[in-house]
Amino acid sequence: MNSQQFNTTLSCFFITFPANFIMKKFRRPSRWLGLVTTTWAIVMTLMGVVQSYGGLLAARLALGVAEAGLFPGVIFYLSVWYPRHRSQSRVAVFFGAATLAGAFSGLLAYGIGFMGGLGGYAGWRWIFILEGLGTFVIGVASFWIIADFPADCKWLTEEEKEWLIYQKAIDSGAHGETSTVSIRYIKQALCDWQTYLSIWFYMGVNVPVYAIALISPSMIASFGHFTRPQVRDAVACCFVIFNAIMADRQKTRFKWIMIDMVLIFIGLTINLTPAPYGVKYMGLFFIASGACTSSSKVGALMLSFSSGAFQIGIGNLDGVMLAFNVGGLIAAPLYAYLLRRANRRKLAELQSGREYTPDEIRELGDKAPGFVYTI
C-alpha cells in the first residue's frame, strides 16, 4: 500500500462508530459485551487472510462496527455498578489497561513476527490471526463470566449485593434511567445543548488519543535516539489511575479534565516547534498522559447523567489535533458553567415547592430538579 491507502485504512473504521446506539437494545451487558468482543475477534482473525486492499478496507469497516460498542458499553456497564463518585477510578483502570496493552502489543507483535513463513503466511498475518483467536476465547467466555447486575451476581454475598444496590439508589435518587430507545428520546438528545457541547470538548481530548496511538511510533522512530514508546504508555497508565482516584476522592471532574487538556496543549505545542528531539519526546509524554486520562474522564462524566452513545459515537469522527484541543479548552469551561447554572435553577425550583409524580421525575431523567450534576 502507498501512504494514502495506509492512512485511509487506519481511519475508515471510525465512520461506523455511531453504531453504538443499538447498545440500549440489549438488556444484559454480558450479551452485549460478549457479542461485540467475539465479533471483534472474528474480524481481527480474518484480517490475517485478506488478499487485497479492498478486502482490508471492508475488514476495517466491519471492525469499526464491532469496536463501536465496546468502550461505551464497558463505561455504561461500570456505571450500573458504581455511584458517580466511585466510577471514575474504575473507568480509569479500564482505560489504563488499554494504555498498557499499547505498551506491550508491540513486543508481542515483534515476537509473533518471527513466525513469518509458517504455513505460507507472512509474519504480519500471524499477528492478526493469533491475537484475534486469543480475543475470541475471551469474548466467548465473557458471556458466562460477566455478572450483569449486582442483584444477579453469584460471587457476592447478600450483604454486598444490598450495599451496592443501596449506593446506586441514593446516587440516582428517584430519577432512574429508561431502558428503551424511542424516537422521542433521540429527538431530546438531538435538541439538547449538552449533546453538542460535550461532543465539542470530547473531540478536544479524543483526537490526541488516536493520534498518539497511530502516529507517535513513527515520530519516535524519526527522533533516532528514543525508540521506546512502551515507556510513554506505561507512564500514561500510571497518570490515568492517579488522576482518576483524585477526581473520585474530590467528587469532581472538571478541574482534572482541564489539567489534562493543558498537558495535551503543552505537548502538542512543543512538537510543533523546532525543539530538540529529547524535548519533543518529553512532549509526547504530556500528550499521552493528558489524552488518555481526559478521554476516560469525559466518557465517565457524560455517562453519569446521559447515555453518552451519541456523543461518543460522533466524538470519534476527529480531525486536526491542536485545533480540536483548543476547541476542547474552550468548550470544557463553558460546559461546566452551564451545568452549574442548571444546578442553580434546579435548586430554585426545589425551593419553590413544586411537586412531581414519580413518573414525571423518571421521565425528566437528569433534567429533574433533584438530580445534581457532578462537575
Rank of each mutant, 00 (worst) to 15 (best):
F6S: 12
N7W: 08
S11T: 14
C12M: 13
I15V: 15
I15W: 09
I22N: 10
I22T: 15
M23S: 13
R27G: 13
S30P: 04
R31Q: 12
R31A: 08
W40L: 13
V49S: 08
V49M: 10
Q51W: 12
L57D: 01
A59H: 02
A59V: 06
A62T: 09
A62K: 06
A62I: 11
A66N: 05
G73V: 04
G73R: 05
I75H: 07
Y77F: 14
L78Y: 06
L78T: 01
S79Y: 01
V80F: 08
W81H: 10
W81A: 12
P83N: 06
H85R: 10
F95I: 13
T99W: 02
L100S: 10
G106Y: 02
L108N: 04
A109V: 11
G111T: 10
G113C: 07
M115P: 08
M115A: 15
G116W: 09
G116R: 06
G119H: 08
A122S: 15
G123F: 11
R125S: 13
R125D: 04
I127T: 14
I129T: 08
F136K: 10
V140Q: 09
S142F: 07
W144E: 03
I145G: 05
I146W: 04
D148V: 03
K154F: 02
T157W: 02
K161Q: 05
I165V: 12
Y166D: 15
Q167K: 13
I170R: 14
I170M: 09
G173W: 08
H175S: 14
T178F: 00
V181W: 05
S182I: 00
I183F: 13
L190G: 01
C191V: 04
N206Y: 04
N206P: 00
P208C: 05
V209P: 05
Y210T: 08
I212L: 09
I212G: 08
L214D: 02
L214Y: 06
I220W: 01
F226T: 01
V231R: 03
C237V: 05
F239P: 04
F239V: 15
F242K: 03
M246I: 12
M246V: 11
D248T: 02
M258R: 02
M261K: 00
L263I: 03
L263A: 14
I264Q: 11
T269F: 10
P274M: 04
K280N: 06
K280M: 15
G283D: 07
G283K: 07
I287R: 05
A288K: 03
A291K: 10
S294R: 09
S296P: 07
G299H: 11
G299Y: 12
M302H: 03
F305R: 07
S307K: 14
I312D: 00
I312K: 00
G315D: 05
D318I: 14
F324H: 08
G327M: 05
G328C: 05
L329R: 07
A331N: 00
P333S: 03
L334V: 15
A342S: 06
R354G: 00
D359P: 02
R362C: 07
E363N: 14
E363H: 13
G370M: 08
F371I: 00
